[in-house]
C-alpha cells in the first residue's frame, strides 16, 4: 500500500462531497519522511471557499478527518489547501 493511500482516498471522497465540481478535486500526497506525508488539495475555481468554510471551520474538520485516516496507516498527515 502506498503511503498516504487512505489519506488520499478519504480526502478525495470528503472534499468531493463538499464541492460543486468533484471532478476537479485533486489530492496529491507528498512523502515528507518515513511516517509523515503532506496532502495537497486542489479544487475547481470557486470551490475552495466552501472547502475552507467560514473562519476555516470546514478546513479544520477536514484536517482532523485526514489525520484520523493517517492514524489508520500509522503516519501523520498535514493538509495544504492550494488555491
Amino acid at each position: 500500500m502506498a503511503k498516504g493511500e487512505i489519506v488520499k482516498r478519504v480526502l478525495d471522497y470528503v472534499v468531493g462531497q463538499i464541492v460543486d465540481d468533484p471532478n476537479a478535486v485533486e489530492v496529491t500526497i507528498i512523502e515528507q519522511g518515513p511516517e509523515d506525508v503532506i496532502a495537497e488539495v486542489r479544487t475547481g475555481p470557486g470551490d475552495m471557499g466552501r472547502v475552507i468554510g467560514r473562519r476555516g471551520r470546514t478546513a479544520r474538520s477536514i484536517r482532523t478527518v485526514a489525520q484520523a485516516a493517517a492514524d489508520e496507516e500509522g503516519i501523520t498527515a498535514s493538509v495544504e489547501f492550494e488555491d
Binding site: 463538499i18 474538520s61 482532523t64 484520523a68
Partner: peptide, 16 residues
Amino acid sequence: SVLDAVHEITKTTLHR
C-alpha cells in the same frame, strides 16, 4: 474530536 469533525463535514455536505 474526529466525531465532531465528521459531524461538521456532514452538515457542510447538506448545505451544499
